[in-house]
Amino acid sequence: MNLITGFQFLLAAGDAEGGHHEASPMAQFYGLMVLIAIVALVTFLFLGSAKKGLNTKFFSKTTTKLLEQLYVFIEGLAIGIIGPHGKKYIPMMMTFWLVIFVSNLVALLIHASPTSDIAFNLGMALIAVGYVQYEGMRSNGVVGHFSHFAGPKLPIAMAVFITPMIFLIEIVSETMKNVSLSLRLYGNIFGGGEAVVAMNKLGYNGDTFLLPVGDFLFPIKLLTCVVQALIFCLLFAVYLSLVTHHHEEGHDHESHGEAAPAH
């Protein structure tokens, strides 16, 4: 009975965004929580299996090798984009990657996923952008971080008019990063699911299901799973590099006995 109720929650969460028939807000909430729990469970099972194969010699277990490959990939991404100090962001990037990828895989199997819910994606985006702002303030100081939003130093007559405008645009730009991160993921996963449903109707003559046309999109959707996880992590790394590279440059200049230039 509980199992049936749980799946009703899942359907409620999935259908809530589709808008076919409105479930109660609480059912949608629990549906999302169950989906997140499924994603967390799959992630933990994978990570737990990988953890069993950890040693200091040679990783022979398949899941451990896969996790190592993911680590190497994310490490390359973090160090390549952010710089040598990007290593400390690897845990967060890996968690983002795993959660988004597993969520997208869940969407392939049960046609309902946390990443097809805009609230979930916006929540992740808020965490990502909030963390970027926190790191920016930690690296450059609160004043230093927000002074970046004011643009270059201008003569006083121009600064009076242009600097507030640039500041406003930068604030909007920073806010839009949330929208960019969340809507892209939501659009791809939810849109992909809807496209499958819509195309499947082409092979349905009203009584019998002739050909699941939409399910032929599976390879593309599988690619989308990887690409969307990659894009989220890539953008997160780019945002981090934008707010932390000044700090690192400053360190470099200081280490060479030069004063860091004003930004």
């Binding site: 909430f29 999302l32 997140i36 845990p91 959660v99 609230a119 979930f120 929540g123």
Partner: peptide, 20 residues
């Protein structure tokens, strides 16, 4: 956008990050 789900997602992630 359900604000409740949004806050809950942030909460789930906050815990998930540390657990993972």
């Amino acid at each position: 956008i359900d604000f409740g789900k949004l806050i809950a997602t942030i909460g789930m992630f906050t815990a998930l990050f540390k657990i993972v």
